[in-house]
Amino acid sequence: MNKPELAKFKGYVAANLVAFALIGLSKLIMADPNVFIYAEFVIIPMLMGVVYTWFMRKYVISTRALAWASCVNCFIAIVLSAAFLREGIICLFIVSPLLLCFVLLGGLLGRYIFRRNNNTLNVSLVSLMLLAFVADSLSGHHYENEVTDTITINAPPAEVWKHVVAYRRNTSPSKYWLFKAGMPSPVESTAEGYYLGAKRKCIFSNGYVFDEKIVTYDENKNLTFDITHQPLDPEIMGHIDILRGQFLLKDNGNNTTTLIGNSWYRLYVFPVWYYDIWAQSITRNVHLRVMEHIKQLSETK
């Protein structure tokens, strides 16, 4: 292995070692170690890029080579996350654009500061990033959100209600690209009874079951249920908790019903400006999959 190749190799190894050491450290000092914080997806990837360029500081790195190196660094980190952090494939697919972007930004930053060869600037920037990492690790992280979707069904509320509380298996193919890619989608719902306090189950395409309990039962108008237990799926484990679901039925007076689906969830992954886009998209498509199935069942004579 020639010298530049050896420097590259050392850069990849060191960048990933630093990243995993810092993730381990953050879990030790964080108030809630189950939360994946902003620092782990923004600052650590940037530091990975900086560490890589430190090993390459004696060589001229073109932007193209740096971008490729960032892809390799990111790929190694993803493989290690799958192996050691037991993350799911779709979850890693979702995180990869964020990681790649910040590893590249860190690389560009590193190339800039090491080109200037200003040790004061180098130490200051790295210290600033580490300070931000510690501050973020010690800060509280709590984020909850609600997603609402609405469809109109050509059937009266009493007919729709029958399929809202429980519905038979949905065998139609999913339209949403993440469901097509293998993310589990809701296919069936069962309820032990049509009354307040009844237990309900939402069954997903991979067999996972969400246990639910009906907390509001206002016939033909409002079904609200709390999620009492959700499966330990590697794609969602520790990243999102679905807290509550709700179906509201509004009689339009013309033999049609407006069905409103609401879900409340808590995110355990930050930054929310990135992950909430995905959470909203997935929750919306879970709603639509269920609501379109209810529509189809209600409108079938």
Binding site: S62, T63, R64, A67, C71, L100, C101, L104, L105
Partner: peptide, 18 residues
């Protein structure tokens, strides 16, 4: 940065030109 990654995939030589 995302544009750079997009360019890396679609037209990598552009990064050399820049």
């Amino acid at each position: 940065a995302w544009l750079k990654i997009h360019t890396l995939i679609t037209k990598p030589i552009l990064l050399d030109w820049i």
